[in-house]
Amino acid sequence: MASKRKNMILLSEMVKTDFKLRYQGSVLGYLWAVLRPLLMFAILYVVFAKILRFGGDVPHYPVYLLVGTVLWNFFTECTGMGIHAIEGRGDLIRKLSFPKYIVVVSATSTAVINMLINMVVVTVFALINGVTPSLTWLLVIPLLIELYLLALGISLLLGAIDVKFRDIGSIWEVLMQAMFYAVPIIYPISMVLETSALAAKILLLNPIAQVIQDVRYCLITTETTTSWELLGVKLGLVPIILCVILFILAVWYFRRKAPYFAEEV
């Protein structure tokens, strides 16, 4: 199909341009893709592992913390770019006829590239920290795909709403600030478990928490609590089902609204 080929050309060129523009004019350039999460990690590490001593008995706590920050950063960056994608590319949408999801996918792709680079850094850190490589590392791939589907679903849904109601971006930012503390990134979930098993269960129903805990389990140490362990097999499926339902709903809504983006944006 000729139009399919055109769409692929458009998508790949937009991905390239977005990535190129991202770090243009900065001295360290692409290095920032790696530096940003590392610096954020350094801050969290000093505050939570050294001063507040959250790490406790978690093995490889620094890597454990780094994985959490990298995945969380990916999620916020991805949704942050994705939600504003349609609005930000209004110039194209008003003048070209093409499938609008391309804009959202290209906007989120920079975050995906950054995350993949960061996961390589994480792996190097893990090896330095004495984590033994194992086959379970491969399970990280489907987990990352799940997280991207969640971020993409939210981007499509909120991005389509953002065309009419620009408040969505600000609301989402605040929500993410709150969510940061609801996801076991800086604190181990065992800390919550000690006070309330119910609270820990509710926190682990969140797909972001589920992915982060599962990645830690597969990559770093089995001495961590995952959604499966705490909720059982049936309830453990809830976060994944949430992701799928949200994604389907988002695609349905986006497709319904997309024909009118050109006149509304």
């Binding site: 080929r5 060129e13 341009t17 190129k20 523009l21 004019g25 110039d91 194209l92 003048k95 070209l96």
Partner: peptide, 29 residues
Amino acid sequence: PFIELGVGFNPELTGRENIYLNGAMLGFS
């Protein structure tokens, strides 16, 4: 359609890069 010339032109990119970018908008690899 040419609703406008130079759709997708980006001021931060060079002339050369913009040719490839705008070309992609027209469906050229």
